[in-house]
Amino acid sequence: QVLVIRIKIPNSGAVDWTVHSGPQLLFRDVLDVIGQVLPEATTTAFEYEDEDGDRITVRSDEEMKAMLSYYYSTVMEQQVNGQLIEPLQIFPRAC
């Protein structure tokens, strides 16, 4: 299952990153890619938005798994409803 992660860049749009092994993705892998997209920032975590629009911070593989399972459940709903699949949007955080 292909996963598209949209890395939101403060004040300048976003970069889409296509991942072919989504469920095996590790927290460190995401930080590495964010580091390539935002080389001047030191990113130690990132956030995503849940169904209520609240930002949830991801700082570990466990939290990463929770984010992915949340995302895959929303994708299934979108597929069932015949909607366009939205990329998983993440917001890098420099701490």
Rank of each mutant, 00 (worst) to 15 (best):
Tyr71Ser: 01
Gln83Gly: 11
Gln89Pro: 04
Pro92Arg: 01
Asp50Ala: 14
Gln79Cys: 08
Arg6Gln: 05
Arg55Glu: 00
Leu84Asp: 15
Gly22Ser: 11
Leu25Cys: 11
Phe27Ile: 05
Ser69Lys: 12
Ser12Val: 10
Arg28Gln: 11
Ser73Val: 05
Gln83Lys: 10
Lys65Asn: 09
Gly82Thr: 08
Gln83Ala: 13
Pro92Ile: 03
Val15Met: 08
Leu25Glu: 03
Val37Gln: 06
Glu40Gln: 07
Gln1Ser: 15
Val37Cys: 07
Thr42Gly: 09
Trp17Val: 07
Pro87Lys: 12
Glu49Cys: 07
Lys8Phe: 06
Leu68Glu: 02
Asp50Thr: 12
Glu62Tyr: 08
Pro10Gly: 06
Lys65Val: 07
Ala14Cys: 14
Leu88His: 00
Asn11Trp: 06
Thr42Met: 13
Ile7Thr: 02
Leu3Asn: 05
Arg93Ser: 13
Val30His: 00
Gln89His: 13
Glu63Cys: 05
Val15Trp: 09
Val15Leu: 08
Leu31Phe: 02
Tyr48Leu: 00
Glu86Tyr: 04
Glu40Pro: 04
Pro39Leu: 00
Gln1Cys: 10
Pro87Ser: 03
Ser69Gly: 10
Tyr48Met: 04
Met67Ile: 01
Pro10Arg: 04
Glu63Pro: 02
Asp61Ser: 03
Gly53Arg: 04
Ser12Pro: 07
Thr18Asn: 06
Trp17Gln: 04
Met67His: 00
Leu38Asp: 07
Thr57Ile: 12
Ala41Trp: 08
Arg59Tyr: 08
Ile90Trp: 00
Leu3Glu: 02
Ile7Cys: 01
Gln78Ala: 13
Pro10Val: 03
Phe27Val: 03
Met76Phe: 12
Thr74Met: 11
Ile9Glu: 05
Ile9Lys: 14
Tyr72Lys: 12
Asp16Gln: 07
Glu51Val: 12
Val19Cys: 10
Leu3Trp: 08
Thr18Glu: 08
Glu40Arg: 06
Val19Phe: 15
Gly35Ser: 10
Leu26Glu: 12
Ile9Val: 14
Gln78Asp: 11
Leu31Tyr: 02
Phe91Asn: 03
Val75Tyr: 09
Arg28Gly: 13
Asp29Glu: 15
Gly22Glu: 14
Asn11Ala: 08
Ala14Ile: 09
Leu26His: 13
Ile9Met: 08
Asp29Thr: 09
Ile90Tyr: 00
Gly82Lys: 10
Ile5Lys: 00
Ala66Cys: 13
Asn81Tyr: 15
Ile85Leu: 14
Arg93Met: 13
Ala14Pro: 13
Pro10His: 05
Thr43Trp: 11
Tyr72Gly: 07
Val30Tyr: 07
Glu77Trp: 08
Val2Arg: 12
Val80Gln: 14
Gly82Met: 07
Ile85Tyr: 15
Leu88Asp: 00
Val33Cys: 11
Leu31Asp: 03
Val37Arg: 03
Ala66Glu: 15
Leu84Pro: 15
Leu84Ile: 13
Leu31Gln: 09
Gln89Val: 12
Ala94Phe: 15
Gln1Trp: 07
Gln83Met: 09
Val19Leu: 12
Pro92Asp: 01
Tyr72Ile: 06
Pro23Ile: 07
Asp16Val: 03
Val4Gln: 15
Gln24His: 09
Leu84Gln: 14
Met76Lys: 14
Lys8Trp: 07
Ile9Cys: 14
Tyr48Ser: 02
Tyr71Asp: 00
Pro10Asp: 07
Arg55Tyr: 06
Gly22Tyr: 08
Glu49Asp: 09
Asp52Cys: 14
Ile85Glu: 08
Gln36Pro: 00
Val2Asn: 14
Glu40Cys: 09
Asn11Pro: 10
Asp52Lys: 13
Asp16Tyr: 00
Gln83Ser: 14
Ala94Ser: 10
Val19Arg: 04
Gly22Asn: 04
Phe27Pro: 00
Arg6Pro: 02
Cys95Lys: 07
Val2Cys: 08
Lys65Arg: 11
Gly53Glu: 01
Leu84Met: 14
Leu3His: 05
Val30Ala: 05
Gly82Arg: 11
Ser73Glu: 10
Gln24Asp: 15
Gln79Leu: 07
Tyr72Glu: 10
Thr74Phe: 11
Leu3Val: 08
Ser73Pro: 01
Val80His: 11
Asp61Thr: 00
Leu25His: 01
Thr18Asp: 04
Phe91Ala: 02
Leu3Thr: 07
Glu63Leu: 01
Gln36His: 05
Leu26Tyr: 03
Val15Cys: 06
Cys95Gln: 14
Thr18Arg: 07
Gln78Cys: 07
Val75Arg: 13
Leu84Phe: 10
Lys8Gln: 12
Leu25Gly: 04
Gln36Val: 08
Met67Gln: 02
Leu31Met: 09
